[in-house]
Structures are given as structure tokens and as C-alpha cells.
Amino acid sequence: MTEVLADTRVPLTDPRVIRAVELIWREAELLDRKEYVAWNDLYAEDGHYIVPIDPDTEDFDNTLNMIYDDARMRGMRVTRMIEGYAIAAVDAARTVRTVSRFVPASVSDDQVVVRSAQVLVAYKRGRHDLWAGEVEHRIRLSAEGADGDRITRKVVRLVDSEGAPPAAGFLL
């Protein structure tokens, strides 16, 4: 059963929320370390990884996105990032990101939806670029324990999604 949390919040100390936050932080570190194979393993086979352009849309199928990856596209993206052909990935910026301001949006025994804020600094060739965005994770909790928890959907809404970010050799 899903609790709708307009007024009554599930506390961050709820063990289900803690599992979700731990997974989100693990994901953040894997992305900063560019361990893309391990990162992809955090996603469910039916999971989506999305960076929209339109700040309001939920209809990702019918709009242009920066990233709209199902398992197939994510797998190809991981290959691209690590195989050494992509000059943007070979010479990618170093990144450090902070994900915080967690708000449990809905919590049940099998799924947790968490909203958060992400601030990422990317450094390359003397320049620091700032990438700020709202993030929403949908995480499927496994009955087998935290090791089986998987991301079923992650949406990163950049504050400047309709502006002009630089082209990136890393992932958000």
C-alpha cells in the first residue's frame, strides 16, 4: 500500500526510506567514479533513466529529451562511456556531486519514490561547470533485502534544461 504524503510525512528514518537513500548515494558515487557497469546494475531491467528538456512533461515518449534510456539504450551508453572510442568520454570532466534535500514522496513495502536536489560540479581544462537539478528516484524494494533494490525510474530535471548546457562526457 502506498501512503500519499501531502501532510503526513514518512520520516527519513523509516528503514525503507533509508534503503532508498543509501542506494541513491551509492549511485552518485559510482557516477562520480565513472564506474558505469556497476552503475547500470543498480537499474531494473524495465527501468528508465531520463533527463528531459521540457520542465513539466511526464510524457517523455512524445517529447524530445536529452536522455531517455531504456535498458537497451542504457547498455549502449555504458559501452560508449567505457569502450574508448568516444573522445568526449575519454577526456571527460571530473565530477563531484551532492544529492540531498531528500523528500519521500511515496513509501510502501515494495516501492519508494524519493525527490531530491542534486548539485554537480564538473571540472575540465581550467573550467568549473555547475549542473543543478531536481531528481526523482523510483526504487523497487526487494523482499530479499537491500542488495536486491533496483531503480525503476530516475528523472533529472536540470534547472537550465531549456537553456544551453555544455555537451557532456559524463552522466547525471
Binding site: N62, Y68, A88, G169
Partner: peptide, 20 residues
Amino acid sequence: LRVHEHFQGPFGFGTPDDAE
């Protein structure tokens, strides 16, 4: 749209390499 996303844009499989 999916063909376009595959190559173009700041996270496409083509554009970032051009930009580099």
C-alpha cells in the same frame, strides 16, 4: 525523436564528441 536523441544534444552519442 528517439533517433534524434541517440545522436544529438548534450548527452547524445554524437554531439559531445563533436564538441570535444
